[in-house]
Simulated scan of single mutants.
Amino acid sequence: MQQRSPAPAAPAQARQPHTLIVENRGSISATGVTRIVSCDENGAVLETSQGILTIGGQEIRVSELSAQTGELRIFGRIDYLQYTEPRPTAGGWLRRLVR
């Protein structure tokens, strides 16, 4: 009988489901948010289990964030949403210094 090695575990971020609900371009409900990278009145950048989410608009404000569940509520005028892949950090500051 051949033994199979266990499949590699998925990264922790991939396990958390991500949903995004936009209501009348005035509010966003999201799950799977791992951290808020930045936020001001013109937009927010969020790290989610599906990549980096950039939200642009006017009078943007975060009203609720649960670090345990990854749930987030944002209010304001939503003008755009964009997903990008996170950039890997290869080598840190020393590698950039040596370039």
Rank of each mutant, 00 (worst) to 15 (best):
M1L: 14
Q2W: 13
R4Y: 12
S5P: 03
A7E: 14
A7I: 15
A9E: 12
A12R: 03
A12S: 13
Q13L: 14
A14D: 05
P17R: 12
P17D: 00
H18Q: 10
T19D: 02
L20S: 06
L20Y: 03
E23L: 11
E23N: 11
N24G: 09
A30P: 00
G32I: 11
T34V: 09
I36M: 01
V37E: 01
C39L: 09
D40H: 09
L46F: 07
S49D: 01
S49L: 04
G51F: 07
T54G: 03
T54S: 10
I55H: 03
E59Q: 15
R61Q: 08
R61E: 10
V62L: 13
V62W: 00
E64L: 15
L65T: 11
L65Y: 13
A67F: 08
G70F: 10
I74H: 03
G76Q: 04
I78N: 02
I78Q: 04
L81C: 06
Q82E: 10
Q82F: 11
T84A: 09
T84E: 00
R87N: 04
P88T: 15
P88W: 08
T89Y: 15
G91D: 01
W93P: 04
R95E: 06
R96Y: 06
R96L: 13
L97D: 01
R99A: 05
R99F: 07
